[in-house]
């Protein structure tokens, strides 16, 4: 399954890497940039079947850069898992679920990976749990649609100088109720966008945002954390154990654009 949802943020996030790839004298990169997302996906799938997981991950990543899709992200996670890059794999599967919460394969892979690597899942607040029930853009559509429906049903009869019918009032009330119910989910989407995952092995969690900082603890790849704020090339994160700083490239956000916006 391939969806083009949330394409802009991912494209913005991957743009520097795409430029880097353009400059790199790699044959694959040059060929990949000329290729379409579908071609890249097929190339990745072929490499994956041939057990060339490095090439597969590269192709899937480039395909996702051009066209973010839950299925491609899931495959990217599989390829990264085969490369023993747990952090990257978990991030890819979480991004797959972010785009499509109905992707059961990604969910099962996440569960298996966390059980195998003995990692904990991010702790979600109730409104964040609600936000996982539907794809993130659906909540925006639902909120917008219900609000305009409520406004329309409430205001249009008056503007058209007609008498309000009972069904119109009932529809307005129902739409308003749906709008109000979707607000916590929208808030949950916003807060969930700040959840990230440690990418590297033994990522040091620093007490201060400095090069020679004291190390509070070390994070395993795939450990969840919440982005709080950034300072220079460091980001302040909260994990289940402590609050501290990591380097920006040591943390992958589920929704990378959210990090840029917060920072």
């Amino acid at each position: 399954m391939k969806t083009a949802d949330m394409g802009l943020w991912l494209l913005a996030f991957r743009l520097p890497s795409a430029i880097g790839l353009l400059l790199a004298p790699s044959f694959l990169s040059l060929a990949a940039l000329a290729a379409s997302p579908d071609t890249l996906f097929q190339a990745g799938a072929t490499a994956y079947r041939a057990a060339d997981y490095t090439q597969a991950a590269e192709a899937f990543r480039q395909s996702v850069t051009l066209q973010p899709a839950s299925g491609t992200l899931q495959d990217l996670g599989n390829a990264e898992w085969q490369r023993h890059r747990t952090g990257e794999a978990i991030l890819a599967w979480e991004q797959a679920l972010w785009l499509d919460p109905f992707n059961d394969a990604a969910r099962q892979n996440l569960r298996f990976a966390r059980k195998t690597a003995q990692l904990e899942a991010p702790e979600l607040a109730w409104y964040e749990v609600i936000s996982t029930w539907l794809p993130v853009n659906w909540w925006a559509w639902i909120a917008g649609g219900s609000l305009w429906l409520a406004v329309g049903m409430g205001a249009l009869p008056g503007l058209l100088r007609r008498r309000k019918a009972t069904w119109q009032q009932a529809t307005a009330a129902l739409a308003l109720m749906v709008f109000l119910l979707s607000i916590p989910a929208l808030f949950g989407v916003q807060t969930r966008a700040r959840i990230g995952f440690a990418l590297q092995k033994d990522t040091p969690l620093r007490l201060t945002p400095t090069l020679e900082a004291q190390t509070l603890t070390r994070l395993a790849p795939g450990d969840p954390a919440r982005w709080l704020r950034s300072r220079g090339r460091y980001v302040l994160i909260r994990t289940s154990r402590a609050v501290g700083w990591v380097e920006q490239d040591q943390l992958g956000l589920t929704c990378p654009k959210a990090g840029k916006r917060i920072g």
Binding site: T208, P209, T210, L211, E212, Q214
Partner: peptide, 13 residues
């Protein structure tokens, strides 16, 4: 070594 790191961090900040 930790103390030196602290001073360096203070100077960096």
């Amino acid at each position: 070594e930790r103390a030196s790191g602290d001073f360096k961090s203070a100077a960096e900040l």
